[in-house]
Amino acid sequence: MNRIVVFGAGSVGRGFIGQIFAEAGWRVTFVDLESRLVQALNTGSYRHVTLSDEGVEETTITGVDAIDGRDTAAVASAVASADFLATSVGAANLRHIAPTMAEGLRLRISERRGPVDILLAENLHGVGGEMRSLLADALGDDADAVLAQVGTLETSIGRMIPVPNEQRREHEPGWVAVEPYRELPLDVAASRAPLPDVPELVGRTDVPFAFYSDRKLYLHNLGHCLTAYLGELLGEDEIAEAIRRPQIHRIVQTVMATAAAALSLEYGEPLASVQANADDLLRRFHNRALHDTVERVGRDPQRKLAEGDRFLGALALAARHGLARPITVAVAVGADKLLGSVPADQRDSELDRIRSVVAHHGGEDQLAVFDEALSALRTSPDLERLALLLDP
């Protein structure tokens, strides 16, 4: 039986990677630091629940085990003998797992076990290069020889997985709930070994992987976050209730359609295909069973309003294709949230920063749209006025 070693047994590790590989007949070995979770997974199975408005589907994922990440010798041995590797630890934690992974890879190459790929289920653009750099530092003089046989495959994690509450984690550490969506695009061009026969893995050679990472950021993440910020303005607590508000739905739908058109033009992907993904996302945002909160989706607005991230990155993309206006309105919504979250003495500098980016990509015309949209959100949010700004 083939075996995958997954660093990180959290929501994505158990809820997505572990599920699709186990259901494809693979043995799944998790590496984690949470002792109770490791103990629970070493029973050989965990409960996996799929939530939708159509009902609840519960299954038991079997053929799993786990290693405590502090047992570095056991982890390195597992890496050396694995048929495939994956990480879902959070990009900031890759530096902590790189040394042990490097030892396992060094051992693997010394035993002539052949090339291996690492599936990077991390929310970071360019994480493939980051992982290679961390491994190279840990491998030292062996870096070139080892990494020549190691692929670092970026992914686009689109499945929405609600975080279980503390009571659930305490009572049943292995339990995880997810939405039905199962597609997992990966950067097949970076592979060094044959791809696993797992139906959910999508590896295309006719479009650069940047299409999928940009689609996730500028379509999924932008639409999701915009829904959260508009929902908060109208007093909604959950994404599913927010997107059901007609005013919010109209604004989010228009912004996402614009992002879809820009992505189609940028990458040559048929518009119908990209728009179908946008429509599916809107449908998925309606999933009440997830109980996904506007607070969770909208947290850390400073990062989300960084240049290149979901708001300002989407603006740059849309502006290159003459489609900036609806995205400019979305940027104003994000800016309103950011300005309300930073200390008073930082608001002017943050506003100046965002206005500068808007002017750079859209000129004075888009700056005027931004200022008017921001004005519509001050004091008493006027979403009707905001919606009117979407059209020229």
Rank of each mutant, 00 (worst) to 15 (best):
N221L: 07
L271W: 11
Q247G: 10
D237N: 12
L230Q: 11
R245V: 12
I243M: 05
L233W: 07
A278N: 02
Y267C: 12
E241P: 03
N221H: 06
T258S: 04
L263G: 03
A242G: 14
I248A: 07
T258M: 01
Q253M: 07
N277D: 11
M256F: 01
G223R: 01
P270T: 03
S273Y: 10
R250H: 11
L234Y: 12
E236R: 14
L226H: 03
A262W: 02
L230P: 02
G235I: 05
D237Y: 09
A257G: 05
L219K: 05
Y267T: 11
V255Y: 00
A272R: 15
L219H: 08
L265I: 08
A228T: 10
R244E: 14
L233K: 14
Q253L: 09
Y267I: 09
P246C: 12
N277C: 10
L271P: 03
S273W: 08
E236T: 08
A228F: 09
Y229A: 06
V274Q: 00
V274T: 14
A262S: 15
Q247I: 07
R250M: 06
I248F: 09
Q275F: 01
A262Q: 00
A261M: 00
E236Q: 13
I251Q: 07
G268L: 13
A228H: 06
V252M: 06
M256H: 03
V252W: 02
L230E: 11
I251R: 02
D279S: 11
L271A: 12
E238S: 10
E232A: 14
A278C: 07
L226S: 01
Q275W: 05
M256T: 00
E236K: 14
M256A: 05
I251A: 08
L234A: 08
V255H: 02
A260F: 01
I251G: 02
A260S: 12
V252R: 06
